[in-house]
Amino acid sequence: MEHGSHSDPSKSTFSLVDEDHTFANSIRFTLNQDPRVAFTGYSIPHPSENRVNIRVQTTGDPAREVLKDACQDLMLMCQHVRSTFNKAVEVAKSSRVRTEDTDSD
């Protein structure tokens, strides 16, 4: 799924099947936030084909590793979102129970 040159691993296009804007746009964001990335972007060559191409050009590190790190970052961000959300829901639930208690008093 990687298309790049053998001599220069810092520039590559990754072609992912069964993905769309959902993944590509958020990974573009995390890649852009990485200082090692010189350029990144994605395209969907044809709307009826389930495929996105993600282009990564770095300042020297292998593009593959940088993309992997970006995925890792996105995953950790998601985990943090999930735990924060669960905590917020717990808080909301307990305060709701409390207001119901005081209502019935």
């Binding site: 990687e2 990754f14 993944f23 990974i27 593959r64 992997k68 890792q72 998601c78 999930r82």
Partner: peptide, 19 residues
């Protein structure tokens, strides 16, 4: 919502394993 976030995590994981 938590399921949705998990799905995005799975997508990342899939790409990591493919890479």
């Amino acid at each position: 919502f938590t399921e949705a976030v998990k799905i995005l995590e799975d997508k990342c994981e899939r790409v990591i394993t493919e890479l």
